[in-house]
Amino acid sequence: MLIHGNCHLIFHVICIIYYLYIAPNKAISRETRRNQQRFFVGIVLQTAIPSILIIFAAGFFIFDNFTHNMTQKAMNIICVAVGFHGVLEALMILLVHRSYRDAVLKMMRRREDEKVSDVPRAVLNLKE
Rank of each mutant, 00 (worst) to 15 (best):
F39R: 03
F39T: 02
F40I: 06
V41E: 03
V41A: 10
G42K: 04
I43F: 08
I43M: 07
V44S: 03
L45T: 00
Q46Y: 15
T47Y: 03
T47Q: 04
T47R: 01
P50M: 05
S51L: 08
L53R: 00
I54A: 05
I55Y: 11
A57P: 02
G59N: 15
G59T: 15
F61V: 06
I62S: 08
I62H: 06
I62A: 14
F63T: 15
N65Q: 10
F66P: 00
T67F: 08
H68K: 15
N69W: 08
M70Q: 08
M70G: 09
T71H: 06
K73D: 13
M75Q: 09
M75T: 08
N76M: 04
N76C: 02
I77Y: 11
I77L: 14
I78C: 02
C79D: 09
C79K: 15
V80Y: 03
A81C: 04
V82Q: 01
F84C: 06
F84I: 07
H85C: 01
L88D: 02
L88W: 01
L88A: 03
E89N: 12
A90C: 09
L95K: 07
L95S: 09
V96T: 05
V96E: 02
H97K: 10
R98Y: 05
S99L: 14
S99C: 14
Y100S: 13
Y100C: 12
Y100M: 12
R101H: 09
D102E: 14
A103N: 02
L105N: 12
L105H: 07
M107E: 14
R109E: 08
R109M: 13
R110F: 13
R110K: 13
E112Y: 11
E112A: 09
E112W: 10
E114C: 11
E114K: 11
K115M: 15
D118Y: 10
V119L: 12
V119S: 06
R121Q: 05
V123K: 04
V123C: 05
